[in-house]
Design a protein around this nucleic acid. Structure first.
Length: 446
RNA sequence: GGUCCCUUCGUCUAUCGGUUAGGACAUCUGGUUUUCAACCAGGAAAGAGGGGUUCGAUUCCCCUAGGGACUGCCA
């Protein structure tokens, strides 16, 4: 059986880490099983959906490496949803309701105050023809609810095991709004049937939904996908992610200089029994993905962890992979430069600072007590530098100046780079060149 | 209020009744670099609380506490 999964974002905003995790789970599962990944744009809400967001979402997925085999918009499929609604009406599963939103709101509040579950009372089922005519005469157009069976729905969830939802304790879901537009539930089920979706992988906020949706599936066809409800993502301190989604959008993370693979690695690993480590390819992530590795507690997302993984990834990234990125941010220096400094960067943009150190005029950093020492060091620095120059030079300085260890090396590092920490000095010295090095040791800007 | 879910080293987690409770990240120590960072090795560190069941409970059951999801003419 070919596995077919879908990711179904609404184009009402850019993708954030929560969405991406869902997309990633679907993608990893499909690619591991050699199936089809469908990108469905849930734009039935024409008011809030925009083309810009749709393009943004596609751009984000592209950037992350989550490629899809097929994509379509729900807004192009209204006839199919109408047909499904017609069938449900004919079968007596879809019934018109005339309450206003305010009335329903009041009813729910009242029930809550009485400590009763806020379930729709199905008053619309009792309406007489006269009452309906009266409502229509008032100009009210009905919204339509799906009549749940009241039975308990069972399914075997790939993450949560045996699940049951008592549809008797649920409100009949509204499928069609008063203005005739479709809510999420019906189009989603119709499309899952049409596309032959075999596995629905989504967040556990949909668990109750699935109970109702399964009944809609059963009312429309024999097709029923397997469900997998993954735990939600929370912020590192355990608070809901929703408060900071703005700063966790892909657009934002990209701008902050995070690598797609670091993001995917983190999102694929948190909340699982695998160690949180970066992987250098989506292939590797795919091979390690398994539903039985997913825990059931909320997965914690940490920006610090992301930065760490980003650094680890860069430490082993070959020049060819970052070449374009380096050129796009105008970083001087080629392969030698990258190989030397990559172990000391967390983000590609950190290379800019090292590029300045090596290729732009800047003053060294010399403390008063080290002035004479640095001047002397400048004197005996050879004109031509090779890989061995650093150790020869420092050995000579050690003998002549009587300095060793930290007091020997730190002043040189500071004078030459202006920094306390950084890559191995031997390599830096060669890239820096003798002339520049001498000038900086004398306290000049070079 | 109701339904469902969760609670193990600082953090994310493994364990399907008997384990020296394992790993990863962070932290600490050592090595390497005649300095720092990076890198490598090693150490310390844990089953919310209370009851059961059992020869034996982190594991099964109940209660308490804490956290989360759902309970929309949102998705």
């Amino acid at each position: 059986m070919t596995v077919i999964c879908r990711f179904a974002p609404s184009p009402t905003g850019r993708l954030h880490v929560g969405n991406v995790r869902t997309a990633l789970m679907n993608w990893l599962f499909v690619r591991e099983r050699g199936g089809k990944f469908i990108l469905r744009i849930d734009d039935t809400d024409l008011e809030r959906s925009t083309n810009e967001y749709e393009d943004g979402i596609k751009e984000d997925l592209d950037w992350l490496g989550l490629n899809w085999d097929h994509t379509f918009n729900q807004s192009h499929k209204f006839p199919a949803y109408e047909a499904a609604a017609k069938k449900l009406r004919e079968d007596g599963r879809l019934y018109p309701c005339y309450e206003t939103s305010d009335e329903l709101d009041r009813q729910r509040k009242l029930l809550r105050v009485q400590s009763k579950p806020p379930i729709y009372n199905r008053a619309a089922l009792e309406l007489t023809d006269e009452q309906i005519k009266a409502y229509e005469a008032e100009g009210r157009s009905p919204h339509w609810r799906f009549k749940l069976s009241g039975k308990t729905v069972h399914w075997n969830d790939m993450v949560r095991g045996e699940q049951s939802v008592d549809t008797g304790s649920l409100s009949d879901p509204v499928l069609i709004r008063g203005d005739g537009s479709f809510l999420y539930t019906l189009p989603s089920v119709v499309d899952d049937i049409d596309e032959g979706i075999t596995h629905v992988i989504r967040g556990e906020d949909h668990v109750t939904n699935s109970g109702a949706q399964i009944e809609v599936f059963e009312a429309l066809s024999d097709h029923l996908p397997v469900f997998a409800h993954t735990p939600l993502l929370v912020w590192k301190d355990g608070t809901p992610l929703s408060k900071r989604l703005g700063s966790l959008s892909m657009g934002e993370l990209k701008e902050q200089g995070f690598e797609p693979l670091a993001i995917c690695s983190l999102l694929a690993k948190i909340g699982t029994s695998d160690p949180i480590e970066v992987r250098s390819s989506m292939e590797a992530l795919k091979d390690e993905f398994h539903f039985d590795k997913i825990g059931r507690a909320p997965a914690r997302f940490s920006d610090e962890e992301l930065l760490l993984l980003n650094g680890r990834l860069l430490h082993e990234t070959p020049y060819a992979v970052v070449k374009d990125h380096l050129e796009s941010i105008n970083v001087g220096g080629g392969e030698e430069f990258w190989n030397l400094i990559r172990a000391n960067v967390s983000k590609v943009s950190d290379t800019a600072g090292w590029s300045t150190v090596l290729y732009s005029p800047m003053p060294g950093q010399i403390e008063d007590a080290d002035k004479d020492f640095c001047a002397a060091a400048a004197e005996c620095l050879p004109e031509t530098l090779t890989d061995g120059s650093w150790s020869e030079w420092t050995a000579k300085l050690k003998a002549e100046q009587g300095r060793k260890g930290k007091s020997l090396f730190m002043p040189l590092r500071r004078a030459l780079t202006g920094r306390d920490r950084g890559p191995e000095m031997g390599g830096l010295l060669v890239l820096l060149g003798s002339e520049k090095a001498k000038a900086r040791l004398r306290g000049e800007t070079a």
